[in-house]
Each structure stands twice: as structure tokens, then as C-alpha cells.
Design a protein around this nucleic acid. Sequence first.
DNA 1: GTCTATAATTTGATAGAC
DNA 2: GTCTATCAAATTATAGAC
Lengths: 195, 195
Amino acid sequence: MTASKAGEILDIAERLVRRNGYNGFSFRDIASAAGIKSASVHYHFPAKSDLGAAVARRYTERFMAALGDPGASRDPMNTYVAAFRAGLTQDGQMCLCGVLGAENTALPAEVAGEAKRFCELNTAWLERALSRPGQLGAAEDASLRRQALVILSALEGAMIVARNLGNLTVFDEIATGLTEARLLEARQADKGNPR
Amino acid sequence: MTASKAGEILDIAERLVRRNGYNGFSFRDIASAAGIKSASVHYHFPAKSDLGAAVARRYTERFMAALGDPGASRDPMNTYVAAFRAGLTQDGQMCLCGVLGAENTALPAEVAGEAKRFCELNTAWLERALSRPGQLGAAEDASLRRQALVILSALEGAMIVARNLGNLTVFDEIATGLTEARLLEARQADKGNPR
DNA sequence: GTCTATAATTTGATAGAC
DNA sequence: GTCTATCAAATTATAGAC
């Protein structure tokens, strides 16, 4: 399954961005890791913004594909937390779009646009996962959206705090804390419904 | 009033780091904003890591001073959220130590150490704020620490998500979501020892 | 404290040979 | 597709005059 050279470049770039940020890697970093010269990297991705946007787009698509359909799983939140946890505990990598959010005002517009799309897709997925089947009316609940935003934010922030503390197990403590706060549960119908 | 030149440099550097990241500013950026030359910036802060560490240290001290004693306020959580909210809504600025966490693996050790200290002080402050007066035993509660970590993470992540979405009011939605989840409340004694 | 001048390196990017 | 060669600009940092 030998990846194409362009795919290899995307792999290397993604790792570097997730560890050091968009401004924390150079074409020469990538070239040396890929065993080619920086001019060859420009052949595949003419400008750095092209590479950055391509990395972010591929990341988002892979991430959403790993999540799957929130209605198809019985415990979608477990899947969700695991998706964020994966990169962090392997190699200390942030969520790519978390890094980009931190650097937001320094990003080319194309790159920032991909990070925005990631957040939109994630909150939409979470809202669907949190609304119980047969309660489609709940999708209009503003507090459902807030719950989705809290979960996304807490997981993004969990990586930041864990990396700052130099202790990646902090991520798991935070996931446990979210469970304790009953944030990772689907919502009960609470509109005028007595229990 | 008139800050010293070193203080002015710290102000400018802090703003740039919080908007663009540690790797997103240069000595010349600072020099031009301060109306001096980059060599003069080096007079005050010999290396970039010195400047970065000084910015982070001052930020942490100012932040903790603004929080005050968590036991002295009747609603410390309001104070806490407001402290994070302040910079974001003015100028789209991240928490400084949130930015540094995202760039963690690219930071000089001195800078990363300051970001770590910020997280340690914040979780300790939150644990005190969350433990009800007269319940000192609660400080040993592991779930109290988890609650503190969730709050810190959610607020750090809230800035990232808000910036990515290009809508800073998202931060307030998330703060409301934390309140709804009863995370911003002091904890009830829930260990079966009624002493 | 601030300047000019400059060193030494890195960066994003292009031209053209193979 | 990859290379050599190169560019123009930017970067961190230092030396020494005022």
C-alpha cells in the first residue's frame, strides 16, 4: 500500500503541524523527512498555503470518516473521545484543527477555512449523537448545541492542558470528568416532560 | 502610567503571541510596533526564548492576581470565566498559555515551563474554588481535580473553537453550556461521611 | 538605550536541466 | 518527478559607535 509521494508529504506535514504548528515547519523539514529536496515538495504543493489546506482537508475527511454515522453506533461518544485521544497518546500530537485555531489570526484564508469546516462538521455530528432517536425536535434545542460545543471545546482544550503539563494521561482524566458531568450522555427529553 | 520600554515590548509581544503564536512573531515586528530597531529589543531581551518566557511569566502573574483568593469571593466562577473571556472578545486573543500548549513541542524549555506553571496554578485555584468552605477533605477528591481540569480545558478549547468558527460569541455559548452542566458550581459533599 | 551595520542561517519560492 | 542552483526576503543575534 505504498502511499504516493504526495501522500507521504501530507503525512509528514500533518505530523509536523500537529506537533509544532503551521508556522513551526518548513518545506525543507518535510523534504529531508521524505528523502527529497524542497523544490520537489513545491512540485506537489506549489505554496505552503496549498499544503496546509490540503493537510487540513484530508485530516477532516479522515476524522469524520472514523466517526461514522452517529445514529449507527450504540455508544457514539466512546468513538468520539477515542478519535481525539488517538493521535495525542501516540506521539503527543494535538488535533490539527486545535493547533490551527490557536494560530488562527496568522493563517492564510484557505487554511483557516478548513479549520472552520472541521468545527462545523464536529458540532453537527455531536448534536446528532446527543439527540435521542425519535426526538428530532431536540435538534432545535439551543442547549443541545451548547452541549456539543462544550464537548468539542473540552477535548480540544484537554490536549492543550495535557501537553502543557507534560502528562498525556491528563487527557483521560478530563474525559472521565466529562462523563462524571454527564456531558457524554444523550439528552433526556426535558421540554415539558415530567420524568 | 508610562510603561517602561521593556514593559511596552512585553505588551506588544504578548498581543502578537496570543494572536499568532510563539512562532508567529519576530523581533522586527515588535521593534516596528514599539518605534525602535530590532537590535534595541535584543538589549532588553537577549534571546527570543527570554522574551517568550518573560511574557508568559508576567501573563500568569497578572492572571492569577486578577483571580484573587477563591475563598474571598462568593461567586469565584464568574470571575474565572470573565478572566478568560476578557482578551478574547476585545481583540480575538487566545489565552497565552493555550497558544503555547498548541505549539508545545516547538517551544524552548523555559517557555514551555512557564506554560506548565500556568496550568498547575489554575487547576489548584479551581480546586480550591470548587471545594466548599469547611470541607477540606474534599481536596483529596480525585473527581474534584477532574472537574477543575474539565473547566480549564473547556475554556481553553472554547477560544480555539470560537476563533476557528470566526464567531467569538461561541465562547459565551460554551460558558453557558458549562453552567447548564453544573460544572461551574461548587461540589456537594458526596462521600458518605457526614462529618 | 538606541542606533547602524552586519553576520549567519533559514525561509518560501522559481528556473531550467535531466 | 526530482534534481541543482539560485533568489529575495526574513530571521535571530552580535559588535561597536553615539
